[in-house]
Design a protein around this nucleic acid. Structure first.
Lengths: 216, 216
DNA sequence: GGCTAAACTGGACAATCGTCCATATTTGAC
DNA sequence: GTCAAATATGGACGATTGTCCAGTTTAGCC
């Protein structure tokens, strides 16, 4: 019996290797130039593999987008579990996770942006391109609702939905800023700007550095 | 001598017809599917025209991106000239212009987004893809500097640069929100959210409705 | 070792890509 | 009306695309 060759990847890994090569190629040269030949060359596999593990190129792209989508939310929820349960700390954890060194990388922001743009050409990507909708919005909106409920001088014009839409938009915009000017991007400035916005609306729960430990 | 045929476009218009068809195709089916044949078919012209008026497809895309870029800034500066000269009104004019019915359309936001994403594949697009950098940032930063200079109780932690980065990021994020969910987008809510952020930092110059007429 | 199913290879396929060019048409100056 | 220049046409080109498949190699069980 042959010795298992540990220098070669196990066969069942090829599917993941193709997904990784797809994401790397998109981040590197863009989706337009990421042909089947290019992806397969990066993966070190043969052209037929894409049709074996996936039905088509579009299906491979969808699998890659899905993988990136769940990787994003898994990080988010891991950070969320280590955070204080008070709503302002849950919000702080999500923001800092989104701006951290390994949450916001050039590779991640490029692939995310490419998938968003490619939705019109590849409809299968749609469910995984609206990263900041659905789940993330719900996390924020619940937390803001918790905060607003306990306010003893509530402003009726200040809704959890407005706060959520504004915060999500700002985070999305900061990602685009990082995408276009990664060398000039300052993560501390970005966090300060976000928390200043929150402090302006909820001064008892946030300041420039993040969530206040105890609402004064 | 032949009568001029008014039912056919003048020849020198073909260049612009190609640019319009390019933008329409990108907004409709995405840049990936916008082949030379597709663009030429929409323009009602023959395949060779692209190589006559432009050197290559990439050059046509760059011309289309440039056209969209200047169209955006021309609108912006037209609105700016009709606005009050006080800095908070210049800021208000730029924001409302950016969120208005004809400043923020599905076609505009889609093409903008596609060009941004395609910069990696087509480097010639780069100068026209960072719509919200350069000029727009300078407009905002000057206006914020004017406001901060006249403040009699200045907060040293509140800089024009932070305000500009935050505002540009939020506007960029609201565009992405509109891109992904145009049917649910509420322009009034979007404006309210932006002005709330500004009111939080500069309560004497902004409120939920926009710029205050006279800084109290 | 033998054998079967799974994993994998790489060439062939039609279709389409962007580019180019010989030719045709139209324009505008004379 | 004539003619040169500008404008436009559409077929042909080689290259590349995504897909498919006949054949080869490998893994895992007996």
């Amino acid at each position: 019996m042959n010795e298992p060759r540990n220098d070669l990847p196990a066969r069942q890994d090829s599917r993941q290797i193709l997904i990784d090569a797809t994401l790397a190629s998109i981040a590197d040269i863009g989706l337009i130039r990421s042909s089947v030949s290019e992806i397969v060359a990066r993966a070190g596999l043969s052209r037929g593999m894409i049709h074996l593990h996936f039905q088509s190129k579009e299906s491979l792209l969808a699998a890659a987008a899905e993988f990136a989508y769940y990787r994003y939310y898994n990080r988010l929820e891991r950070h969320l579990q280590t955070a204080d349960t008070a709503p302002q700390f849950r919000i702080e954890a999500l923001i800092l996770c989104d701006l951290s060194e390994d949450g916001l990388t050039e590779s991640i922001v490029r692939t995310t942006h490419e998938f968003q743009a490619a939705t019109r050409a590849y409809p299968m990507l749609a469910p995984f391109s609206d990263t900041r909708d659905g789940r993330l919005r719900t996390y924020f909106e619940r937390a803001f609702e918790d905060i607003l409920r306990d306010l003893d001088d509530p402003d009726p014009a200040l809704t959890a939905q407005d706060l959520t839409t504004g915060l999500v938009a700002m985070m999305e915009g900061l990602w685009v800023d990082f995408l276009l000017h990664p060398q000039n991007f300052d993560r501390q400035q970005a966090a300060r700007i976000v928390f200043r916005m929150l402090a302006g609306a909820l001064p008892r729960h946030f300041d420039l550095l993040g969530a206040r430990r105890r609402p004064a």
